[in-house]
Design a protein around this nucleic acid. Structure first.
Lengths: 184, 184
DNA sequence: ACTGAACCATAGCGTTGCTATGGCATGATG
DNA sequence: CATCATGCCATAGCAACGCTATGGTTCAGT
């Protein structure tokens, strides 16, 4: 129903399933609880997708690959992504969200420890910047403000800019990030 | 009602105003039309705030100042910002949005023409990256995912990274951007 | 003074999320 | 084996929602 742009109503939901509206209240406690479960499912899927990103010997590449997986997941089910970050709703699955974010932080820390970034670079700050920028781009694309074609080049440019500012060699960085987008 | 987190219903809206529910249909054509008008008002206010940003002889500073004004406007009325970029709604006032975005592009073009950026830097690309990154940060702050205190430092860092990647001297860039945040 | 259009108050329709109630299983207990 | 307790769901109905049909009111133009 989300994908079909149909309004998700309680009665339309149970129609054809053989169940009645009460089932939703027994298992989810109501419509808000159901939406919360939907968002939780979205974050769980996202975490699974990010966990499936293989670790290579290029931490910068891996950091970018996480961003690619993030974008791919969002664009495959834009309605789910919109529900996950819907206005006026808590994130609903802080554990899965934190786990995903920690993967970003870990990749940034590894890049620093491997000498790609400046010793003083803060992995958490860098991860937050990459996430926020990626979230902004994906949100605008999902909403139709930006065309999908510009996502890869813009995300690549922003990622390279952030990593280069953190100390990475710009040419080497660009090669790593572009490889991640080409592989995804 | 938006600010009070109360549900915006047609009946609650007209209560106390002396008007009846029909007035909404006469002037806005229904609730979707009213929300569209609310979003339009939001974009109009945003455009006014951005238009009020003074032009100095430092185009990079002005570019950052636009970002500061954007963030300030969003954080002053977070509920309005959420409504503006609410899921499943068109932007509703493309003219005002484009006008605001064009100011960003113009500032980037001026920075390039003044020699701050590389001659090959594309103002439109740079403006889109700055906007998307700022939108992502503001969205996460407005939603409560990120605390408001981190907005300024993170936005500063991202802006400097993007501009430095576009060719600006990093120290001079940081000074310009930080001045914009300090002034706003 | 008359006419036409614009506007809105009233009443009511269909649908929404939600709750109260009762029936039907299943499994533990004596 | 009978009995009871518990969990689950179908049914019916409630208040509130967005919306529409209808008729009365107001005001500008002739």
């Amino acid at each position: 129903m989300l994908a079909a742009r149909e309004p998700v109503t309680l009665r339309a939901l149970v129609e054809g399933t053989g169940a009645s509206t009460m089932a939703v209240y027994t298992h989810f406690g109501g419509m808000p609880g159901l939406w919360s479960a939907v968002r939780q499912e979205g974050f769980t899927r996202l975490a699974a997708r990010l966990a499936a990103v293989p670790r290579t010997d290029d931490a910068v590449h891996d950091l970018a690959a996480l961003g690619v997986a993030y974008a791919r997941t969002a664009l495959e089910h834009p309605e789910l992504y919109r529900a996950m970050f819907d206005a006026g709703a808590d994130l609903a699955d802080e554990a899965a969200a934190d786990a995903s974010f920690d993967r970003l932080v870990a990749a940034a820390a590894r890049a620093r420890d491997e000498g790609r970034l400046a010793p003083g670079a803060d992995p958490r700050t860098l991860a937050t910047q990459v996430w926020a920028a990626g979230h902004g781009l994906v949100s605008l694309v999902v909403q139709g403000v930006l065309p999908a074609e510009v996502l890869a080049p813009l995300a690549t440019g922003t990622t390279v800019a952030l990593l280069a500012a953190a100390g990475d060699d710009i040419d080497r960085c660009r090669a790593s990030v572009e490889a991640a987008w080409a592989a995804g």
